[in-house]
Amino acid sequence: MRRTALILAPWLLLLCAWYALHYSGLVNPALVPTPHEVAVRFVELMRDRLPLDILMSTRRVFVGVICGIVLAVPVGFVLGWYRTIRTFIDPVINFFRALPPIALIPLVIVYFGVDELAKTVILFYASFFAGVIVMYEGISQISPIYVRVARTLGATDFEIFRKVIVPMAVPHMLTALRVALGVAWATLVASELIAAQQGLGALIQNAGSFFQLDIIYVGIICIGFIALLMDLALRMATRRFVSWQERIV
C-alpha cells in the first residue's frame, strides 16, 4: 500500500507540474497540450497506427541488440581475459565507441539504403560497442583467486571455464545487455527520425511536420515507458539469475 503510493507519487507530481505549466500562463497553452488531451490522442492512435509503430520500433531494437550482444559477449570475454590482446584492441574499440551512432546514420543510409537492414546495422553497431566495453571491463575485474582455488581443487581448464568463469561472467553479461538496450533505444529513435515510415521516431517526425504537438507527446511518452518496461524486465531477470549478488548493477 505504502509502496504503491511511493511509486505513484513522483508520477502524480509530474502530472500536476504538467497541468500547472499548461494553466500557469508562463507558456502559450497551445504549445503545451494537457495530459488528458494527450491521453485521448493516445487512445485514438492505439486504434490506428500506434500498435504497428511500437511493434516496429521494439522489433528493431530487439534484433539489433541481440545481434550486437551475441558478438559483444565473446569478444568482451576474450578482451577481458587476455590482457595483452586488450592493450592493443582497447584504443580501437574506444575510437569506434566514441563515434555517436547517430553521426553514422547518413553513411549507413548511403551503404545500406533506408530499409530495415540500415536500422539493424546502426543498432548492432550501437549495442555492440556499448556491450563489449561493459563486458570486458567486468571480466577483467574478476579476481584470479577463484581460478587458483578451483585449480587446487583439481579443476581442468574446461571445468574452470564452465564452473568458475561463466558464472562470474553472467552478471556482466546482463549489465552489458541493459546498457546496450538503453543505447540502442536512444539510437533507434534518432534513426527513425531521419529515415523511416513506421516506428515511434517516424510518428514523432511526421507529427512535427504537421505541428501535431499532442501526437509528439504520445510518441515521446511511449518511448519512455517502453524503455522503462524493458529495463524493469531485465532487472527482474538479473535478480533471478544472480541472486548471490548483494546489489544488482
Partner: peptide, 29 residues
Amino acid sequence: RGVIFQEYGIFPWLTVKQNIAFGLTLGAN
C-alpha cells in the same frame, strides 16, 4: 594439496554447501 589462501577465495556465486561440494563435482574427484 589443499590450499587455504589468505583471502579465502570462497566462490560467491555458490551457496555454502555448493562451495564445499565444488571439488567433488570435478572430474578429478
